[in-house]
């Protein structure tokens, strides 16, 4: 039942993206999202596409793995593309007109742009964060990036701790769920037949023991943490101290420049670019 659940699809490696400071990666992620969503003109879109390609290339994640991770999204992608294709009302004559179906040139453009934009978002963010940052690095980075909020009494450390505990317990709970399913199956429980209501009812013997054991584990963990003198984030040091070096700053500045460039490219047309280049040379 839960065999297919893969989580925290961290892909161990030693690529440029793996070595980049996770905090820098978080900032780059924000810039990347802006860049992809803002790119409107062809030139800007090409730039964002090229940058996504660059990210994938330097991540060292195998292409087949990437494709596999994007597979569940095929339906969403296809749906968005089709909606854009058929429901964009453009100017001038439609290219195809068949009863109520009218396809305009701008419809095709929108569909392609939307498809590429979504695909970039999914692949780009996954190589930037999920594939190349271990869950622990990520929570540490979030804690560090959000730490200024501590000044206005936001419990940043507690949130980060909760997040890493939650991530830590996902595999444990999946294992526990499988055990409980087996145990109830051994008592002739049937999860696969009957109508919806019957199937939902069949989940009760799984969910109740699972909740009970989750609460029990939480209490045990809290006790264990207290026994080891955990008292919150104050004065707590990290095993792995995050360090940014020159490479990280170069990366950050480059991405910032690309993002700014995309804003300008949005306002330029092809002829202007050609003219601009001609002026230079």
């Amino acid at each position: 039942m839960l065999k297919d659940v893969t989580f925290g699809q961290y892909y161990p490696g030693n690529s440029l993206l793996h070595r980049t400071d996770p905090r820098i990666k978080l900032i780059i992620l924000v810039e990347y999202l802006v860049l992809v969503l803002v790119a409107e003109s062809e030139l800007a879109a090409l730039t964002s596409l090229a940058f996504t390609g660059f990210l994938i290339a330097v991540s060292g994640v195998r292409f087949s793995v990437l494709i596999k991770s994007a597979k569940p999204l095929i339906f969403v992608l296809a749906f968005t593309a089709i909606v854009n294709l058929f429901f964009t009302v453009g100017e001038g004559e439609p290219l195809v007109s068949f009863y109520f179906i009218k396809i305009y040139q701008s419809g095709i453009r929108n569909a392609v742009m939307m498809l590429l934009r979504l695909l970039s978002l999914v692949l780009g963010t996954s190589v930037l964060i999920s594939f190349t940052t271990s869950p622990l690095e990520l929570t540490d980075a979030i804690e560090s990036v959000l730490s200024p909020l501590k000044k206005i009494k936001v419990p940043v450390h507690e949130f980060a701790m909760m997040m890493s505990i939650a991530l830590r317990f996902i595999p444990t709970l999946i294992e526990e769920t499988n055990k409980i399913i087996s145990a109830q199956k051994a008592r002739c429980a049937d999860f696969e037949s009957g109508n919806l209501l019957k199937r939902l009812k069949a989940l009760i013997p799984i969910l109740i023991p699972l909740f009970v054991s989750a609460v029990r584990r939480a209490e045990e963990l809290a006790d264990a943490m207290e026994c080891r003198c955990y008292h919150g984030g104050e004065g707590r040091t990290k095993l792995k101290v995050m360090k940014s070096d020159a490479k990280d700053y170069v990366f950050l500045v480059t991405v910032t420049l690309i993002t700014v460039a995309v804003f300008f490219l949005n306002r330029l047309t092809w002829s202007e670019v050609v003219g601009f280049c001609a002026d230079i040379f």
């Binding site: 526990e176 055990k179 409980i180 087996s182 145990a183 109830q184 199956k185 051994a186 008592r187 002739c188 049937d190 009760i204 013997p205 109740i208 023991p209 009970v212 054991s213």
Partner: peptide
Amino acid sequence: MVKIRSRVGLVFQYPEYQLFD
């Protein structure tokens, strides 16, 4: 298989964690 499972009972390790009712 349900029939087989009623003929061969299996009690797992730490079965107390499967109680629910």
